[in-house]
Amino acid sequence: MHGAQNLSEFSMLMCGLLLLIPLLGIWYLKLGMVKSMLISTIRMIVQLVLVGFFLEFVFQLNNWLLNSVWFLTMITVAVLSVIKNSNLRLKHFLFPVLFSFILANFFVVLYFNYFIVNLNFILDAKYMIAIGGMILGNSLRANIVGLGDFYKSICKDEQLYFYKLSLGATRFEALRSFAKKSFTAAMSPTIASMATMGIVSLPGMMTGQILGGSVPLIAIKYQIAIMIAILASTIISISLSIIFTVGKSFNKYGVLLKSVIADK
């Protein structure tokens, strides 16, 4: 099997024309998103082109320190996005969430590379950055939902939380139902998509493998492995994020600090 067909400049121009369909739809429906979509599209193109050149250099050099630093940079950007989109205060959440993501994602990626792919060099750039990016991207989306929902639910049902404390529950016992609801909201989309993979959709990992020349059965093995890795990373990162941030988000009386929620 051959690799993916190269896309010419004309092909990319045709791709750009395809963008007119959502832009015209948004303009016609007066959704007010034309500017934001154009800005996001331009940012995506510029970032991907720059990263593409940079990754060629990283893959050629394949230095363990550079690979680790770049993956740490990816994690840091993801954490900033999680905190911002969860409407939480950066000063309260940056270091606890960053530490949670580092532990969860480095552990899962290194485990994946050593035990599943059986690499001799577990910090190999091609696997660490590509696999790590897929795991981190899905974990990011789930954490935005999970972490944001957890603290918003506490603010919304603060009286229920105080009632549980008044009955003698510890802080973690009183927060258990909020955490359960947040985990369900964060994990449900991934679990639902897993249930229809192969029938409703061909996921990105599998599609990329096939376009790259792999036989379908090998692509399927990688897709199964990456989805399980995503689940593991997501559950670990959300758990650690909640555990590590709770200590800084409540006062000594168990009351949630109002300063943890960012002003809209």
Rank of each mutant, 00 (worst) to 15 (best):
K258R: 08
K180F: 10
D263Q: 14
S139A: 12
Y222G: 09
I226A: 05
K164M: 08
M197G: 06
L13T: 08
N87R: 13
N138F: 06
G204S: 06
K221G: 07
T76E: 09
I42Q: 00
V82W: 05
F150C: 08
I131L: 12
I228H: 01
S36H: 12
F115L: 13
F121L: 12
S241C: 03
F93V: 09
Y163L: 10
I39C: 05
F106N: 03
I228F: 15
K164E: 13
A169T: 01
F183M: 13
I154M: 10
G16A: 10
P96S: 06
L38W: 00
V46R: 01
P22K: 06
L23P: 00
V34H: 00
N105Y: 14
I243N: 07
A174C: 09
A185T: 02
S177P: 06
L257M: 14
G212Q: 05
F10K: 02
F95V: 14
P216H: 08
V46P: 02
K248Y: 13
S139T: 14
L202T: 05
I21M: 06
P22A: 06
A192I: 04
I199R: 05
K84E: 11
A174Y: 07
L123D: 00
S68I: 10
L61M: 13
K181W: 05
S193V: 03
A179S: 13
I199P: 09
K164I: 00
E173L: 05
K264V: 13
S139D: 03
M12T: 08
